[in-house]
Computed example of a mutant assay.
Amino acid sequence: MPLTLTLDPAVDPALRDGILDLWADVTNAGGAVGFVPPVTRETIRPELVRHFVTLAEGRARLLVGHDEEGRVAATAFLTFNTHPLMTHWLWLYTVMVHPRHQGRGYGRDLMAAAADAARGFDGIEAIRLSCRGGLGLERFYASCGYKEVGRVPGAIRVAPDDDRDDVIMLLPLT
């Protein structure tokens, strides 16, 4: 049951709703994608709108994976740097795979497709992402070729007295 990955799909209500559902389901299952559970689609909607604005402005590209039933099962936003000294690398944001698909290799497929897409963008030499420490995400990204290049202790507060490291990972593409 393969994941069908599409770079720059048409953003329509079905895609929007699919991403909202995915983001809420991932967060409510304990995923580290910018929120802490419990969340609703309405909690997430303003952040998704901000992501869509970056797409519309040409500052980001969207990679979406659909499962065998056509449902949105995975996403990653590839966001270009606007700083003139950092345009040779991009950010990877909101990397998600639906919990029902965990363990099927969809995460690796998504990460490989993101790297392949980035290699096709003029002047891009690396992908940078950050992840919440304490969940083992660094191991997953390392298994996809990323190297930890920085860590900010306690930078992410998920609850009172529950601070997590912000872990910075880099994948050279050249």
Rank of each mutant, 00 (worst) to 15 (best):
M1A: 12
P2F: 01
P2K: 15
L3M: 13
A10Q: 15
V11Q: 11
A14M: 04
G18C: 10
I19R: 09
W23D: 10
W23Y: 10
A24F: 00
V26W: 04
V26L: 02
T27R: 00
T27I: 06
N28L: 01
G31V: 04
G34W: 03
F35Y: 05
F35E: 09
F35Q: 09
V36R: 10
P38Q: 09
V39K: 01
R41V: 08
E42W: 05
I44Y: 03
P46L: 04
R50W: 01
F52Q: 15
V53H: 09
A56N: 13
A56T: 15
A56R: 13
A56Y: 00
E57R: 11
V64S: 09
H66L: 14
E68C: 05
E69C: 02
A73I: 00
T75Q: 07
L78G: 10
N81Q: 14
N81G: 05
L85I: 03
T87A: 08
W89N: 08
W91K: 13
L92M: 08
Y93P: 00
V97E: 07
H98S: 14
H98W: 10
H101F: 09
H101G: 11
Q102V: 07
R104P: 04
R104S: 14
G105Q: 06
G105K: 01
G107C: 10
G107S: 03
G107I: 03
G107T: 04
D109Y: 03
M111K: 04
A115C: 06
A117L: 09
R119Q: 11
G120R: 12
F121S: 03
F121Q: 11
F121H: 12
D122Q: 10
D122M: 04
G123K: 05
A126G: 04
R128E: 13
S130Q: 11
R132L: 06
G134H: 12
L135D: 15
L135I: 14
A142S: 10
S143M: 01
G145L: 09
Y146R: 07
Y146D: 04
E148L: 08
R151H: 10
V158H: 09
P160Y: 04
D163G: 09
D165F: 06
D166G: 04
D166A: 05
L171P: 03
L171Q: 07
L171D: 02
L173W: 14
L173K: 02
L173Q: 02
